[in-house]
Amino acid sequence: MKNKFQWNNLFLAIIVIVLAVFPLVSDSRTWTILLTQIFIFSILAMSYDILLGYTGIVSFGHAMFFGMGAYTTAVMLKRMEPTIGVFILSIVCGMLLAALISFFIGLMTLRLKSHFFAMLTLAVSGLFLVLAEKWRTVTHGNDGFTFKAPEFFKDRMMFYFVTLICLVLVYLLLRRFVNSPFGRVLVAIRENEQRTKSLGFNTLHYKVIASVVAGVIASLAGSLYAVSLRFVNTSVLTMDITLDALLMTIIGGVGTLIGPIVGAGVIELAQHYLSGLAKEYPIFERWIIFFGIVYILAVIFFPRGIVGTVREKFWKRKTKTRPLGKEEVS
């Protein structure tokens, strides 16, 4: 087990090193920006995986936390000095706001059965979207507004490194979270909530905490996203963002953490290349149709997501039937 864990860590460390070295050896601005987007959406998708993959909660309102982070950072950087200090403060404020809102929404709605919860999150998220559209003095409505990013981020490479560091930190923190006894209870809730209750767990308490963690991480992704564009409008609160997170998680592999990162990479790259092909081949002007075909194929050939299927075929099978050594029973 330890050996497998070490190989896993070594593999991830190599990938992080390659990604860290990449902007130093390549002067492609397009790739730097594309990879930055992938890192940001990986953070968002991992946060969604805590809900969907580990706790079995389907939320259609995850974009509201992403949007909260994006607007908090954008508004603070516009109204205050665009410094690193304000940027960090805005991330903290966005996270606190997301924690507070997700706590109350969770407390009110997570008692409900999953489909009612999903519909209610959609409704609450819709409310935030309307609020952003109507509160023009702050948000400038649908048109949105531009703002200045801190001087430090003028160089795209710096922002690339910041998002990469955030991705690695979020991954490590969430891995620790899901592998803890708390994470085991979340999986138990996903598998059989009634049974988890009858083992003595207040499942609502666990689900609310999972929802707060997911909301806070989504808010961080939103803050980074706004700075990457130096612009924010109501699109950060739309259902499209939630659907992207959902698809990235499903295609990458639910309940795996690495899966959503892979999913974010696949989807962002597919979007980039398919839309790019339209310049040469007119048929690709309808690239969204091809995108749909990619989704269908992914679900048919990788029903547990890319990472889930790979793990099942090449990794877990080896451990499934391994009997326990005497020393392993405490």
Binding site: P181, R184, V185, V187, A188, R190, E191, N192, Q194, R195, T196, K197, S198, L199, G200, F201, N202, T203, G255
Partner: peptide, 30 residues
Amino acid sequence: TYTIANAGIGYVPEDQGIFGDLTVEENMKV
């Protein structure tokens, strides 16, 4: 339910209620 369980009642349901994605060890630890 969780209060009743914590009061000292263990329950073995008809469908066994095993957590399929957790190992035997993790099922015991939960």
